[in-house]
């Protein structure tokens, strides 16, 4: 494992639950690994394969999508669609062994600041272990 490896992780967070959860983690001063950059979206259902694949192919070592728990969507059912879109993409990555573990979906509610920190840290750790994305250096994209 490359000790100096600092992964680049893109985190798509829904505005209502997960972003609020992240804020809570912040105000509780929970420590997180500095590898994740947050991209706020209004709802996790805004995140589709176009955004995720683009992130990967442009060199993201990991992509985390976080939204409200199923049933809690601020827009009632967005996250159900998000889940399906995610399941599809994950399956494609699995089918092709494209390191599906680099893609993660987590439900983080507004009260789950601690969970947010845990999810991010665990994911960052996992990605650090897996190492840099092969797409980072791929010249033939």
């Amino acid at each position: 494992m490359d000790k100096d490896f600092k992964p680049n992780i893109v985190g798509f967070l829904c505005n209502w639950c997960s972003y609020a959860g992240a804020d809570l983690a912040g105000s509780n001063k929970l420590e997180i690994k500095p590898f994740l950059s947050v991209v706020k979206v209004m709802c996790s259902s805004r995140v589709n394969s176009n955004l995720v694949l683009t992130s990967f192919l442009w060199g993201a070592d990991g992509v985390l999508i976080a939204g409200c728990h199923p049933g809690d969507c601020h827009y009632e059912k967005g996250n159900y669609y998000a889940r399906r879109r995610f399941a599809l993409l994950k399956k494609i990555m699995e089918s092709l062994n494209l390191e599906p573990q680099r893609l993660q979906l987590s439900w983080v509610s507004a009260s789950e600041g601690k969970r947010y920190a845990e999810v991010v840290n665990k994911f960052a750790e996992d990605i650090t272990k897996i190492g840099p994305s092969p797409f980072r250096k791929n010249q033939n994209l």
Binding site: P70, G71, K77, Y80, Y81, R83, R84, R85, F86, A87, L88, K90, L105, S106, W107
Partner: peptide, 14 residues
């Protein structure tokens, strides 16, 4: 498949 969903499905994705 992408125009529909079930409330209880794909729990394994998370």
């Amino acid at each position: 498949a992408l125009q529909d969903y079930l409330e209880d499905e794909f729990c394994e994705v998370e």
